[in-house]
Each structure stands twice: as structure tokens, then as C-alpha cells.
Amino acid sequence: MSGGQDGLAIELRGVTRRMGGEYVLRGIDLEVAPGKLVVLRGSNGTGKTTLLRLLATRLRPAGGQALVFGHDLTREAAAARARLGLLTVMGGSFPLLTGRENLELATALTPRRPGLPARAEAGQAEPTEAWKARTPLATLGRVGLEHGADKLVRTYSSGMKKRLGLARLLLLDPDLWLLDEPYAALDDLGKRLMDECVTAAQARGRTVFMASHESDRDHLGPDAVIELKDGTLRMFGA
């Protein structure tokens, strides 16, 4: 998984974390190079979500050092957050907003990433085609939610909420995709869509770190499969 010391997407050195008085993570060491797809396995309650939330800056390590793209997750959390996105099990959308409004909120609060298409090129009054393809509505269409764009999220099924979370990731397209059980609640079509999006993200050079029980998704060809057990990581397969 290592791609050299400089420019690692994820770098963990002896990371520990306690939850409810017990150590869930007991000295995690991990290096993930940019552009890699890593699958994290582990039984329920072994700390997969804790590790993902720690990488997403929502939990602080109790000990050790955690870096995302060279940014220390304790001291430079804001800089790290600008380069990552987390898809949670429940999707993480506001139930009293519509799908479109949820995406508009996310884009309104996120500065435009360098390299993404501008609304209009210099001298052009109309939005560019590339920009149009990245609007909230177009992105909802990509995940099969165009019909639910203007419905409140509280009327969505679990699978639709997961698709909306995926749409948010597609729209913001962070450098590091953190996926917590991305296939949970999705139907077969949704699982294939998730596969396509993960593959496409990796092709764009994004790093994908996914916690998943779905062993039948191995056709994605992960660069590494690791297992979290008793608070430590071990190589499971590649």
C-alpha cells in the first residue's frame, strides 16, 4: 500500500482510540498511497466506523499520529477536511430538505476545487457543458434520483438516502473517499452503481478507503484488503 513517505493519502502511526473506556484501536499503522483502493474488513464492533470517523476528523486519536495528504488530523483538521469526503451508513442528509437542496447546501459550503469546470469560461455567458454535468440535478440523475430531486429526504427509502450520499461525494469529488458500508441498503442496481462510481473515482486518481462486509465486490480489484481485529490491522488479501 505504501507509495513512499511523501504525498501519502493516509498515514497512520501507532494510532489508538478509546470508545466507552475501552481501546477500540490499539496502535494502528497504515500507509495508503494516492489513487489506491483499500477495503477494510472486520466483524461488527471491531472499530471500522471508528477508524473511518477518525480519518474523517470527526474523532481525535488518543495516541499516535494520523495524517491525510500530509495534514495532521489533530492540528490541521480543516485542511484535511477540504480533501476528504465520508459516506456514512445512513447517508448523512438533512431529512427536511429535498435531495437537490441537500446537494446545493454541500456545494454552497465547499469552495470550488481547482481543476473542476467553471460555470462559464471567460467571455461565455452560458454555463459550459462540463459545468452542467456537475450541477446537483445532473448528479442526482447520475445516481438515479432525478425523480426524487424535489422530494423531501424524509420520504426517501434507505437506498435512496445512500444514493443521495453518493451523489454528494460525486459532486464534491474529494481526493479521499471514505466509504462506510457503501453497499448497505442498496439494491443490486445500486450496488453496481456504487461499483461504477468507485472505479471511476479511482480512475480519476481518487483514493478510496472502504469499510465493507461485501466480499463479493472483490471484482473491483482492490489494491489491498485489510482486516481490523482486536484493535489492530492485518493484511487480509490483495
Binding site: 474523517a56 470527526r58 456514512t88 445512513m90 448523512g92
Partner: peptide
């Protein structure tokens, strides 16, 4: 549904 956490994940 974890929406506030998602808000806090934005920069």
C-alpha cells in the same frame, strides 16, 4: 440521520 456530522465534514 447524521446530517449535522456531514455538515461538519464540509470545509
Amino acid at each position: 440521520e447524521g446530517a449535522f456530522e456531514q455538515l461538519l465534514l464540509l470545509p
